[in-house]
Write a protein that binds this DNA or RNA. Sequence first.
RNA 1: GGAGAGUUGGCUGAGCGGUCAAAAGCAGCAGACUGUAAAUCUGCCGGGCCACGCCCUACGAAGGUUCGAAUCCUCCACUCUCCA
Length: 381
Amino acid sequence: MAKRIEFQVSATDGSARRGEIVTRHGTIQTPVFMPVGTLASVKSLTTEQLKQCGAAPEAPNGPEIILNNTYHLMLRPGVDLLEQLGGVHRFMNWDRAVLSDSGGFQVFSLSSIRKVREEGVEFRSHIDGSAHFLSPETSIDIQQRMGVDIAMAFDECPAYGLSHAEVEKSMEMTHRWARRSLAARTGESALFGIVQGGIHPDLRKRSAEEIGSIDFDGVAIGGVSVGEPKHEMLEVMNVTAPLLPADKPRYLMGVGTPEDLLDGVAAGIDMFDCVMPTRNARNGSLFTSLGKVAIKNARYATDQRPLDPNCSCVTCRTVSRAYLRHLFMTGEIAAMVYNTIHNVSFYLDLMRGIRQSVASKSLQAFRDAFLSRVVSGEVDA
RNA sequence: GGAGAGUUGGCUGAGCGGUCAAAAGCAGCAGACUGUAAAUCUGCCGGGCCACGCCCUACGAAGGUUCGAAUCCUCCACUCUCCA
C-alpha cells in the first residue's frame, strides 16, 4: 500500500517549520489551522461557504483540512449510514482532507456520562442516554469506515488538576491504547498518536518518547486546553514539541487563540485545531487584525466601517459593523454565518502569514507586528 | 345606565400587612468561550454615595388606618370585560 500521507519540511525558522502534507484529498500547507466540523459540518456554514473562507481572491480559498468527531458522528448519523453513503467526504461534499478526533476528548468533556476501563470507554449518549462503547479498536474502525484521511489514536484526555500519580496511570493506559490503535488500523487512513502526561514535564517526556517510538504517521500533543492556565499549556508545548520526531507532522490538539498559534509554530508545531473561531463567532466574539470585537457592544450600533479593515473576506468586503451588530442582536441566522466566515477567514489568513514568515525566516518579526497591532486597541479608532 | 375586573420598575407579569428596591421572563449593558452536550454560559440591570453597607425616590393620584402598607379603608383619575 502506498504511504497514507507524505510529510515534507521545506523551510525552518528556529524551531518553526514550513512544510506540506500530501493526502489522498489534496496537499496541506503547514503550519495549518484545521477548523472544527464536529458533526461533518463547520457550524453555521455550508460546505460551499466554508470554501469561500480566506482572503486571497485569486487563490483557492477555504481550509485544506477540517476536523470531525468520531463520538458525535457515531451517534448521528451512525457509522453504518456514513459508510453506506460513501464516507464523510462524499456525505458533506467535501473533497479536501479530513482529520477525525477519536472520541478521546469526549472522555474528558463528557466525563459525567462515561465510564473508563482498560478495555475502553462506556458512554451514555448525551442525546438519548443509550449506551455506546468506544475502544481503540472500535474508534479506529469507525474512523476508517468514515474514510478520513487522518485518524487519531483513541486516548484518555485527563482533566486538569489530577495528581501526578493519576495522570501517570492515565498516560500509561493511553500508551497501551496507542499500540492497540495502531494494531487496529488496517485501512487507508493515516494514524496519529497522542502524547499525554498532563502538566508534568517528566510524564510529557516519557510520553513523547513512547508515542514517538511507535510507527505513527504523525504525533499529537493532547491533554491541553482543558482548563489549565496559559503558562502551563505553553510549558507543556515547549517541553514536548522538541522531543517529537522531526520527520512527522506535529499536531497540538485543541489550540488555540491567535497568539497560541504563533507560539505553537515557534515551538515547532505543524497542525492546530480549535473551536474558538467558530464558537466565538456564533457568540459574537470576532477576531480582527486590530484586536477582539464583541459585535454586540453598543458602540458598533452606528459603525459603518467593515469589521476588519485589513480583511478581505466576504463579511468584511460586503457588510458593516452596524449591520453585523443588528443581525446579532436580533438573532438572525445570517449573523452566525457572517461571523463564522470572518473568524475562519481570519484564522486561515493568519496561518498563511505565519507560513510566509517561516519561509522567509521572519516569524519573530511577524509575531511582534501582529501582537503590537492587536494590543494597540485601535479597533474603535 | 347596570355588574364586575384592573392600574407594579423600559415591556410582559408575580406579590395581597413586616423577611420588598419588589419574583420570573423579555429587552438593555457588559464579560467569558481553546481535540464543540454551546446560536451557549455568567454578571449587572430605580438613583446616589467615603459602596460587601448606608441614604433618597418608588408599586396610577390624594388622603387615611397601623409601630409598619405595593398589600387594608376612602375618594379621584384612567383601562378592560359582560349586561342593557
